[in-house]
Amino acid sequence: MSLEPNTANKTAWGRISRDGLWSNNVVLGQSLALCPLLAVTGTATNGLGMGLATTAVLIASGFLIALIRGWVTPEVRIPIFVLVIAVLVTLVDLGMNAWLHDLHKMLGLFIPLIVTNCAILGRAESFASRNGAGASAFDGLMMGLGFTLALVLLGAVREIIGSGTLFANASLLLGEGMAFLEMTLIPDYRGFLLAILPPGGFIALGFILAGKRLIDTRLAEAQRRRESTTGTGALA
């Protein structure tokens, strides 16, 4: 069993990172997992907590599924993947309830929803069942971080516009040492309800998706221009 990604490509690790964090990002690239995304991103802290919990499940499910992929036949693979993911999520749920209780009170409702996060089964099916355990765990890490990035970004935008704060209650998640993250950006702000409600989530997500598209277009254009310049240089 090789720990290397299947592809002979030397930059495979780099490509997995790039895929997970940016070009094939769960939310920004694949538009998956929108239900947990919109449900928890009322604040950046909730987004961070949900993102980290999902990342833990993604890493573990990628690793385990890559380990067992040799035994699992295509006919029964889906029930087995679902079983693995459901067990992992239940264990994360129990662990958080016991040891991160305050965060669990905020996110408790959404943790079981990780099971229904199509991105996790999607990665199991499209990556972990075809690659080594190390590469799959790494893919889980990168996909999870990409998801966390999207959650925190959307949570931050909605929290700033909706309540004028950033990372409120972060000390519940990260410990008292991180209390400095809790910022009130707009004092005496009366709040903007729409941003916190689900429609605000859709609107903010729309702007973020548009922003990513814009950056991608700019990058592609710059790339093309660079290629044409070097092309002309070679001709001259």
């Binding site: 067992i68 029964v76 079983l83 067990v87 239940t90 264990l91 129990l94 662990g95 309830n97 016991a98």
Partner: peptide, 20 residues
């Protein structure tokens, strides 16, 4: 295969519940 995995899952869940 399916039965074995289900059994394993049940064992893990029982252990998790006992621990927490």
């Amino acid at each position: 295969l399916l039965g074995g995995f289900t059994l394993l899952a049940a064992v893990l869940l029982v252990a998790g519940n006992l621990a927490t």
